[in-house]
Simulated scan of single mutants.
Amino acid sequence: MDFIHPRRGRRTLHEMIAEIQSYVHEEPTESYKVVIGTDSQTREHSTVFVSAVIVQRIGKGAIFYYQRNRYKAIRDLRYRIYQETEYSLKCVDALKESGFFSFSIQLPMEIHLDIGQKGETRKLIQEVVGWVTAVGYTAKIKPESYAASAVADRFTK
């Protein structure tokens, strides 16, 4: 499971975790939050999914990484939104399994979903938010879901 830092390039999961831990330890008294979101873009023959992992130093910047996966074109919106949510949750699981949350500073986490009150995705809000909260995470939707609708979206193009 590799990730990409926009300036430093490709990183393994363990390299990414080490860099994030270093970032947090630079200013250990600050408040932080982990935000994970996935967006997708379907073209003629493929769908690209991009998951973003953002660690915010609240009010003082952030560091982020992303992961890109390409699959055969997925036309069904409900299925695509479910896949986006699954990618975000799998990302959290990979971080947990790799010891990401074992360092001393508590990091609250949010899952950002690329759904909102406007458009076709409004029909999916209850289902998808329910799924994320049922597994124990805070879910955010548009316009608060910047990890999916802004950061991940930027790298689906």
Rank of each mutant, 00 (worst) to 15 (best):
M1F: 07
M1R: 13
M1T: 10
M1G: 09
M1E: 13
D2K: 12
F3K: 06
H5W: 14
R11I: 04
R11Y: 15
R11H: 15
L13R: 05
H14I: 03
E15W: 07
M16I: 07
A18N: 12
I20H: 05
Q21E: 15
Y23R: 08
V24F: 13
V24H: 11
E27R: 14
E27A: 14
E27G: 01
T29N: 15
Y32V: 11
V34Y: 05
V35S: 08
I36T: 04
G37E: 09
T38W: 03
D39P: 04
S40G: 06
T42N: 03
E44Y: 09
E44I: 06
S46T: 14
V50Q: 13
S51P: 00
A52C: 14
V53M: 09
I54N: 08
V55I: 15
V55K: 11
Q56P: 00
R57G: 06
G59T: 10
A62T: 00
F64D: 11
R68Q: 13
N69R: 15
K72M: 05
K72H: 07
A73Y: 01
R75I: 03
D76P: 01
D76A: 03
L77G: 01
L77Q: 08
R78I: 05
R80A: 06
Y82H: 09
Q83N: 06
S88H: 02
K90N: 15
C91Q: 12
V92R: 01
L95K: 02
L95H: 02
K96D: 08
E97N: 11
G99Q: 07
F100L: 07
F101C: 02
I105R: 14
I105M: 08
Q106G: 08
L107S: 11
I111V: 15
L113H: 04
Q117D: 14
Q117T: 12
K118E: 13
G119S: 11
T121C: 03
K123W: 08
I125M: 10
V128N: 07
V129I: 10
W131G: 00
A134C: 06
V135I: 14
Y137G: 01
T138K: 03
T138H: 01
A139F: 00
K140I: 00
K142F: 02
P143Y: 06
E144F: 12
E144P: 05
S145R: 04
A150K: 13
A152W: 05
D153A: 15
D153R: 11
F155V: 08
F155I: 09
